[in-house]
Design a protein around this nucleic acid. Structure first.
Lengths: 353, 353
DNA sequence: CTGAAAGCGCTAACAC
DNA sequence: GTGTTAGCGCTTTCAG
């Protein structure tokens, strides 16, 4: 059943040359036109495929790149993944994917697995903080973060002094350690996206705007705080964990504890989904009773009624660019790239009532 | 920068034993308790990770399993992928993922890449027909299909004689070649799902029910034809290619060419999305003017208004079971498994008007 | 119970 | 130009 693979030796024998010659020909080295032709012909005829295992082992190089996302069921991360896969394919590189469930432990475990596979280039939407990522970069992995940055070790969501922290897009990123802070990242311009949304809501007359966030939305809260200006009503800032249940609970709790809020900004599409559901359950009409802006322009945003006003970020591009960075080895110039967001106004926001 | 990996040799030296001993200890072989302890200690201290490359090369075994899906942006396939990843992780196996875009050519290319990586176990939602898959199985790959079966070579969607074809779930699957027909598959019980939905619509008084399908929905049309019984109005059976645009065009065209239809069955969530959009664009009210049943119970189905009545199939389970099968080597007894579907009635269907 | 040695498929020196 | 050879890190006989 297990058909023995055709090896370079087989090709060499069949072509009446040495293995080195075959290797050279196949990797575009020098060879007499005649030999080259013969080898190529034989290789094709035998349907020879060089074993990546052998090659990688010999070259002590990695095969492929790794991709870690929190949840492939989330359309946005699906977009990111598609971007990474597209770029990797065009480079002929395989992609080993892992889903972390937004759990630092699973994330660490998956990284270990990648290391074992000699995959030393990684695109990650990080869940864990510096304590997870410091060892990884130190292990010699080339990593590029996508969509978000690792949170600080003490992830209380409430950065204390924001004064002497490194600024990325002007948002305190609380770089937990030098090495991790130097990891390039491909991010959406959260600051501008959130600011635009908040201004839009302001313009509509809203004053009590809630923020509904999830894991990894540190930069977005920070941007929210900045955009709102003045002291933020802390009760209006709530966080869920990664699950749908948790998102729903957070949204529902928010609406019930603060019936006076007039608008909510959901920092991710799962949060947005939860907000719509919770609002409906509580007989809150959108946008009459409450206005809603959601992060991520997923296809179904348009199907809601009313269609959801969203902050669109280019998931696919984020993935593609991250893969590009990691593939080109991120030569010095580690600073990553920031992609634009866009406020797409549909029907889920109205004037304050 | 590139830190040399700790190899088995390093561990052996540090522990004052031979490499063979280290290997044995780490793979649970025999060794004196004392030696074992020492080796384990040293390995842990050095943070030694055996290289999968070396191991796999030596054992001429594959590392990991492959996963090929049409599009990770489609929530359903995201669920399937999550299932596969979950199973693979619990088995400690890495997963190499590829997105085919429902294009047989890309699919073939990706399979080639997997072969090169020595990945010889594959879970696939197939796009190509027998001509793609026959060579693959013959190359010695262990493959398990998920969610659908490869279509016939002449994929006209209109099987001619259904008499002497192999029946799977009683649906003509048009097995294009012995080898491919023997590939195990994990499928949802499309036949029952579709039948239930059609009966439900019948019960509501609908007689002109349209079928909106996409790539890989051969079994579903077949089930539709069977459920409707009698000769089906062929104008009411339309197919889109994989893209969202195509789906929209198909849906829109259907509504316009046959304004007399009263219900539509969308064979996948992207088709359902398109149907909702097209209906809205044409000022068709759901369910007053047209009833809609969609395949796949994606989270947003509930967010639509009215919430969509769906045929739910367990995407995650499908992926998980498929991975299980491919991991346990699918010992003889290739027949796969069929998982139940469920009609979830929400608000998108009403009595015929 | 343990070590030495042979190779898995490949590439990169190094000879010819 | 082309062949020979020495490993890459690992497991697995085969002796001791």
């Amino acid at each position: 059943m297990e058909v023995r693979r055709v090896t370079i030796k087989d090709v060499a024998e069949a072509a009446g040359v040495g293995v080195a010659t075959v290797s050279r020909v196949l990797s575009g080295g020098s060879a007499s036109p005649e030999t080259r032709e013969r080898v190529l012909a034989v290789a094709a005829q035998l349907d020879y495929r060089p074993s990546a295992l052998g090659r990688n082992l010999r070259q002590r190089r990695t095969g492929g790149i790794g991709l870690l996302v929190p949840d492939l069921t989330d359309t946005f991360f699906g977009q990111v993944a598609e971007g990474v896969l597209a770029c990797a394919r065009s480079a002929g590189e395989p992609v080993v994917v892992g889903s972390t469930g937004d759990d630092p432990e699973q994330e660490a475990e998956l990284v270990g697995m990648l290391l074992e596979q000699s995959v030393d280039r990684l695109v990650a939407v990080p869940s864990g903080g510096a304590e997870t990522w410091l060892p990884v970069t130190r292990a010699g992995m080339t990593v590029v973060f996508a969509d978000r940055l690792p949170g600080g070790p003490a992830d209380d969501g409430l950065p204390g002094s924001t004064a002497d922290l490194m600024l990325l897009d002007g948002i305190p990123a609380r770089p937990p350690a030098r090495a991790v802070a130097d990891v390039p990242a491909v991010l959406a311009d959260d600051r501008s996206g959130i600011r635009t949304a908040v201004r839009y809501l302001h313009g509509l007359g809203h004053r009590r705007i809630a923020f509904l966030g999830g894991p990894g939305h540190d930069r977005r809260v920070a941007a929210f705080r900045e955009a709102v200006g003045a002291p933020v009503d802390e009760e209006l800032v709530v966080f869920a964990t990664g699950s749908r249940d948790s998102a729903y609970a957070a949204a529902s709790g928010l609406f019930q504890s603060r019936p006076d809020l007039t608008a909510v900004l959901a920092a991710g599409n799962m949060l947005g989904e939860a907000a719509v559901l919770a609002a409906r359950e509580l007989d809150l009409r959108v946008p009459r009773d409450v206005s809603l802006v959601m992060y991520d322009d997923v296809p179904w945003a348009e199907l809601c009624s009313p269609p959801l006003t969203v902050i669109a970020q280019p998931g696919r591009d984020i993935g593609y660019r991250a893969a590009e960075l990691v593939l080109r080895g991120t030569g010095r110039r580690p600073r990553g790239v920031t992609l634009p967001t866009e406020l797409i106004v549909r029907g889920s926001c109205g004037p304050r009532h």
